[in-house]
Design a protein around this nucleic acid. Structure first.
Lengths: 154, 154
DNA sequence: TTCACTTCTTGCCATATGACAAGTTTTATA
DNA sequence: TATAAAACTTGTCATATGGCAAGAAGTGAA
């Protein structure tokens, strides 16, 4: 069980609670890179598949219940269990596509549309994570997100 | 040798010329996803590593000289040649990081800074590809890019 | 309950960028 | 060279979003 705050290891299945990953850019801005809710898998893909750590930060936003997979166990399962390997490959591909879609959305969509998309895809996350984290994930400020929410509801 | 226009296969080493990959979003916008110059490797990574095609479009922007690797050859080399495998893994990781950095830059940086960064990292590309493709890669319009260039030069 | 603290909202104004259209320059081709 | 097509620039105005600060609402602890 994780307590809210910083955590170190990086291979979990999240049973309950909320987690985010974030990066700090050269100007010191904290930017949420991904948001996770129950049922999600949190893996540093480049590290686990290609032994190249990303220096992405992981933070538990609430108390969480999650299952940790030790790296050596992961490798053994990956090498020996076909279904596990295929599942993990699928997750990695899904993760890559999500990053790509998000990147395109940052270019082509209005912030309002990105918010609506997130609301549709991950409503439980939007309802349980503070606006400032959602805002940086969407590429806007919390002020703007607050206005977008007002516009949608009103 | 490729002629300008659409091309089909997706595993090349680009010796000379310029290539871009692009996607068309739901509203029909053509968005440049990546830009390639001589020395670059153009691979549909998810496809070649995970058998999941991306439907990313590849377009030669000039006449190109490039070396095509057939999928089965790639697999054989990947499985049997350690150095090749390590090199390809490195390229994939680099590609993932670049996508990530670009995504962060879209959130945290001004368009002008993104342009300056691209100019620094890939000057030969900026000088040889039309502004409209560079603009969509940077997440702005060609009009805005033109103004940014004027501001920098003047 | 009360107090402090964080989160969220709102107002005001500034600014980056977009939309559109008209020119200008460059490039390709006959 | 002549001509058309594409690429690039520029003007005018609109709009999305940011910056900052004040206030309101929610949350947790003594």
């Amino acid at each position: 069980m994780l307590k809210e705050g910083q955590v170190e290891k990086k291979y979990w299945f999240l049973e309950s609670g909320f987690i985010r990953s974030y990066v700090v850019d050269t100007e010191g801005n904290d930017i949420t890179f991904n948001l996770y809710g129950s049922g999600d898998v949190i893996i540093d893909y480049p590290l686990i598949f290609f032994f190249a750590p990303t220096r992405e930060n992981i933070q538990a936003l609430t108390d969480c219940v999650c299952w940790e997979i030790i790296f050596t166990d992961f490798q053994e399962m990956f090498n020996n269990i076909l279904n596990f390997r295929e599942q993990q490959r699928g997750l990695l591909v899904g993760s890559y596509f999500a990053l790509k879609e998000h990147s395109i959305s940052l270019i082509a969509d209005q912030a309002k549309d990105r918010y609506l998309k997130l609301l549709k895809d991950k409503p439980h996350i939007v309802q349980n994570i503070s606006l400032k984290h959602i805002a940086t994930f969407l590429g806007i400020t919390d002020t703007s997100l607050s206005r977008i929410r007002k516009e949608i509801s009103g």
